[in-house]
Design a protein around this nucleic acid. Structure first.
Lengths: 233, 233
DNA sequence: CAGTGGTCTAGACCACCCT
DNA sequence: GGGTGGTCTAGACCACTGT
């Protein structure tokens, strides 16, 4: 139930409830949300408030409205969002390829009394019998926000799925710089490249909605990775 | 005045009016929009409709709401939008630098009965007495949409300002691919580089709100250009 | 204090989809 | 037809900003 006396606006409360149901899997991809009139009864709030909440979820690219039919969960967003910073796992499944991950390094480092997980992963996709390696991802994550995260096996678990399902922290936006790099020997070997053409690297941070930094990232993109952007001016 | 019987929703009509006033310069950067109650009187529509229109302009990053004060034009958007595809001119002024442009090539080419303007420009900024060259932009623009565009001097005129002010066509979104390239001799010479480090190149198309393609672009970014991205997941 | 935007209610009419 | 979302009205109360 929603709290009408809370300082948090009702539409934000409702949005959080709905987002939670989507993220937790209670509402699955392509499922319909309860209709607006149903939500009016369930929560005893007016349609305007409900529409405001759903508007913002559309905004975030989580759901899509279909006139005369309903509002539907859309996890593989392509239209609204920009580039697949969503999650490598979701990205791969979206192209109906099977994602594979090889952990190159996983260790805990102390930085001025904060324990940080350093995780370097080689990521790729498997199609039939061939494996294509696409990126080398390095993540630095504060264990104060994610106690126990260091004990997971990241060849089996999606980092972002753990963030959301085990820790209820939802990545909301990223602040990224893109730079071109010359491939070094180690990168060349890991990505099994044929030449030393330049590559793209992105580095930056990932934040939740309220601005908490949850991850520093550094991604090297192999030449098979298309870097597409869809930008509203 | 707005037309209440039009198929176009009132909030879209109002949004277009306000955007037009901003783009045309009638409302300048940091100017306040008329207050919501003032707009209610001016257009004889309810506040909900007005808020919807302003919401979408906030969305587009054109204006910012300030509680208790008003709604203000924000042309140098940094917070909401992503990266300076707005316009090189606006980008440079936003950093209080003086933008300079050198036209490297300007010619009209016929492509299957469509006359296209090919424009290659070297772009940079001047601070005190030093000039920093930042990018090489190549634009291909259909003259059917912009009759007479070929006669402008693009060392003096901003391409996007002409689009908006002379032709009333507003760039709305871009579809871009980013690739790393190795600098060739010509690029090296034009950008006055010291070495042959890899560079970034973006190529793609620019569209209006209704999906009309108005420009094919290809931009080579020099090493002084920071490629920052602010992405909502 | 008056003026601004922020939230919410209760209702209306319409267009679309499906059966 | 009944159910869905799309638009709009007319009002209310609140929080924030300035003077």
């Amino acid at each position: 139930m929603l709290n009408k006396n809370d300082v948090i606006p009702l539409y934000v409360q409702l949005k959080d409830v709905l987002r939670g149901e989507i993220m937790s899997g209670k509402l699955k991809d392509n499922d319909a949300l309860p209709s607006e009139s149903q939500l009016m009864k369930n929560y005893s709030i007016t349609r305007t408030t409900i529409r405001r909440a759903i508007d913002e979820l559309v905004q975030e690219g989580l759901v899509e409205r279909v006139h005369g039919k309903g509002v539907f969960v859309r996890l593989r967003q392509t239209r609204h969002t920009v580039w697949n910073f969503q999650s490598f796992t979701e990205y791969a499944f979206g192209k109906s390829q099977y994602p594979i991950t090889k952990v190159l390094e996983q260790k805990v480092i102390k930085e001025s009394n904060n324990r940080m997980l350093h995780l370097t992963r080689l990521r790729g996709v498997k199609t039939n019998r061939t494996i294509s390696w696409l990126t080398i991802d390095t993540s630095i994550i504060p264990l104060s926000l994610f106690p126990g995260l260091e004990q997971y096996d990241f060849e089996e678990n999606s980092l972002y799925e753990l963030f959301r399902q085990q820790y209820k922290l939802y990545p909301h936006h990223v602040d990224i710089e893109i730079v071109p790099i010359t491939c070094d020997h180690w990168t060349h070997k890991q990505l099994q490249l044929n030449n030393y053409d330049p590559l793209l690297q992105s580095k930056g941070s990932v934040y939740t909605e309220n601005g908490t930094k949850i991850e520093d990232i550094n991604i090297i993109y192999g030449p098979k990775f298309q870097f597409k952007l869809n930008q509203y001016i």
